[in-house]
Nucleic acid binder design. Structure first.
Length: 276
DNA sequence: CCCCAGGGTAGGG
DNA sequence: CCCTACCATGGG
């Protein structure tokens, strides 16, 4: 994609079908972005992002070329060929409709710890509540940025927390799960860099040792926090889609990128409040 | 009062 | 292996 820099803003020349930042940042894969009219903003990797998109370009406001190269290019998964991914997924009408609805979604490369904690909080919860809990976690423990927003706290910044320290975040019974996750990382029982470099079978085993991390949360963490596109989270909605359209299982040829297909399907049925 | 939300755990068949 | 009660919390 052609990148230019003018007046302090970063311009990415692209069309909505290649990447749609509104759908990408508001499809349930991350919890820190909000849209107000044509602007969408949030925090990732300790940096505030304010952006908008037109028919011909994405504008990242007040963004240096260095920030783009080191943070946003990776975060937005700019270098992955989604045209090829989508072509290989057009194997039936169900997935085709979902891609037609929001084929501009990309799988973000989020910070592993943030994604892991966020999806621990997500269990048996709804997205508005997940967002408010994550936001309050950031306000209480994260580094304050220049514009007054807060970074997601590092595991080291949460070192030593007890469930009492999480009171008021509306985590419910999930507070102990966050405590266990933080403890394991800080005492070295869990190393997220090792998860990164492990094959997916080992990665699953390592993440599942955390209390509150079952099959679904684990797959979400792997897909959104470790960019394992083969990870396939099955929530209540996807369960309905599988029961209705894929009784014989999800097509095997999609296996290496099943997580991407899952996200197209999830977003379509959630936004339309129907099973396709 | 009910049910649901990007589920998981513990316990008992 | 399966099934179920229960887990906090807020919204509808």
């Amino acid at each position: 994609m052609n990148i230019t820099h003018k007046d302090g803003n970063l311009h990415i020349e692209t069309d909505m079908s290649s990447i749609n930042i509104y759908d990408t940042l508001d499809c349930g894969q991350c919890f820190r972005f909000k849209q107000e009219n044509e602007l969408i903003s949030g925090v990732a990797f300790g940096k505030k992002l304010v952006a908008k998109q037109t028919d011909s370009e994405i504008i990242l406001y007040d963004t240096t070329g260095d920030d783009y190269e080191t943070i946003w290019k990776s975060f937005l998964d700019i270098d992955t060929d989604y045209l090829q991914i989508k072509e290989s997924l057009l194997f039936d009408e169900t997935i085709s409709k979902a891609i037609d609805f929001a084929g501009g979604i990309r799988i973000l490369k989020q910070d592993s710890f943030e994604a892991l904690c966020s999806f621990i909080i997500s269990q048996n919860n709804n997205i508005p509540r997940i967002k408010s809990s994550v936001e309050r976690l950031c306000e209480r423990f994260g580094k304050k940025l220049n514009d007054g927003s807060y970074a997601f706290p590092l595991a080291s910044e949460l070192n030593g927390i007890k469930s009492n320290d999480l009171a008021g975040l509306s985590l419910g019974y999930r507070d102990n799960y966050i405590v266990d996750c933080v403890e394991r990382i800080n005492d070295g029982r869990l190393d997220l860099e090792i998860v990164h470099s492990s094959d997916i079978v080992v990665a699953r085993t390592l993440l599942r040792e955390i209390k509150g991390v079952g099959p679904k949360v684990c797959e979400c963490a792997l897909l959104f926090g470790f960019h394992r596109l083969e990870a396939f989270p099955i929530d209540t909605w996807i369960k309905k889609v599988l029961a209705t359209y894929y009784q014989g299982g999800f097509p095997e040829k999609a296996t290496p990128i099943a997580g991407v297909a899952q996200q197209y399907l999830f977003h379509y049925i959630r936004k339309n409040k129907i099973v396709i």
